[in-house]
């Protein structure tokens, strides 16, 4: 029976875990259920719902965040493995009231239609431009190849990344 495959009731499995991590440059001290993913930590413990989810299995890229500066899928990172680490989400992209150039270019270029995959794309693009400020169209497509979008057909996203890269290179 299916029931037997879902472990229930072992008290040692219901323990909470304590974590200290930095989220968008703020130190957080949390006590959470041990089974939670980084995605669940962000959305449910910190109410940072800008990070989305489309499958929770690593198949869509909607939940991408930067973990210690690297693009990862928060649905496949156990929260318990984030102790002592640093996370950046879409909520941490702006500088005060000023949008990051990627954010303003996405908004202007039609790169966000329904907007659901947008946070993941923004963080993937940010990671790319920090590594390759003058990324080519092919490099942009490759760097964003872990993010699915069903609305745009990607081309306006590519253009937004190119426009933001130009702004960032111009030092604005």
């Amino acid at each position: 029976m299916a029931t037997d495959l879902i472990p229930l009731g072992d008290p040692s499995l219901r323990q909470k875990v304590r974590l200290e991590l930095v989220v968008n440059e703020e130190r957080r001290d949390l006590v959470i259920d041990g089974y939670k993913s980084l995605l669940e930590l962000l959305r449910e413990e910190l109410q940072l719902t800008g990070t989305k989810h489309g499958c929770e299995l690593g198949e869509c890229g909607a939940c991408a965040v930067l973990l210690d500066g690297q693009l990862v899928l928060s649905c496949l990172v156990a929260a318990v493995e984030c102790d002592g680490r640093s996370v950046q989400t879409v909520e941490g992209m702006q500088n005060g009231p000023t949008l990051h150039p990627l954010q303003s270019c996405f908004a202007d270029a039609g790169a966000a239609q329904c907007g659901y995959c947008t946070p993941g794309f923004l963080l993937a693009a940010k990671e790319l431009l920090e590594r390759k400020p003058d990324a080519t169209r092919a490099e942009i497509a490759e760097a964003l190849s872990g993010q699915l979008c069903r609305c745009t057909g990607y081309l306006q996203i590519f253009e937004a990344v190119e426009a933001a890269a130009a702004q960032l290179r111009g030092g604005r």
Binding site: S12, L13, D33, G34, Y35, S37, E56, L57, A78, E81
Partner: peptide
């Protein structure tokens, strides 16, 4: 949302 089952984690 798909969630992990409950488990105990060790970090050697």
């Amino acid at each position: 949302m798909m969630r992990l089952p409950r488990f105990q984690y060790f970090a050697p």
